[in-house]
Simulated scan of single mutants.
Amino acid sequence: MIRLMQAGDVADVVAIENLVQSHPWTAKQFAEAVENYHTTVIEQAGKVVAFCIMQPVLDEANLLLMAVHPSQQGKGLGYQLLEHSIAELNNQPVQIFLEVRESNEAAIALYEKSGFHQIDLRKNYYPKPDGTREHAIIMVKSCSDDFASLFK
């Protein structure tokens, strides 16, 4: 079941985040996200297994964070959650932006499947555990047919 994230989901979301991120958000950041952003989760058998945090800004949105529990990856849940989260945005954005690690091929494939494409590269953006840095790919999804036609 896909639903809005609630304060009671923060512990499950933090647990997922700690499994998948080298520099995870804190419980406080997730609690603030529930209050300030468009946050959704997938719940299975009473447990959160995926989450998505989007920040609507005027006629745009930013995908801030999204993750699926490692045991549930590869089942299409990320795509379902992303599509649902976009459809539920109240500001009906013209375009949605995100940044993703250059090495995160699975996430890039998911975003491309959902209609995102690369528009830029932010060099040395993400810290890596070994002290080096990794590039971020900046992607956008055009949500308006009129706007999308400008880029064809």
Rank of each mutant, 00 (worst) to 15 (best):
T26M: 06
H84W: 12
E102W: 07
A50M: 06
M66R: 10
Q73H: 04
G115E: 10
H84P: 06
L82D: 07
E112K: 06
A50C: 04
A50G: 11
L121I: 15
P56F: 05
L58R: 15
A61P: 14
G46V: 12
L98D: 02
L82F: 08
G78H: 11
Q55Y: 07
K113I: 07
P93Q: 04
V41T: 02
H117P: 04
W25P: 04
F51T: 01
T39H: 01
A27S: 15
E99H: 14
Q44L: 14
I108R: 05
N62K: 04
E83I: 06
L77M: 12
Y79N: 07
D120V: 00
E88K: 12
I108K: 08
P70I: 13
R101C: 03
F51A: 00
S103E: 04
S114L: 14
Q118I: 13
L63N: 12
A31Q: 14
I119R: 07
L77E: 13
I96V: 11
N104A: 02
A45I: 08
E112Y: 06
M66K: 13
G78I: 10
T26L: 08
E88I: 05
A50H: 01
E83V: 07
T40I: 00
Y111R: 00
E60W: 08
E112F: 05
F116V: 03
V100S: 08
K47E: 15
Y37C: 00
Q118D: 05
C52W: 02
F51W: 06
G76T: 05
G78Q: 03
V34H: 06
I108A: 02
V94S: 14
S71E: 14
A109T: 10
Q73I: 04
Y37K: 01
E105V: 03
P93V: 12
Q44A: 12
A107F: 05
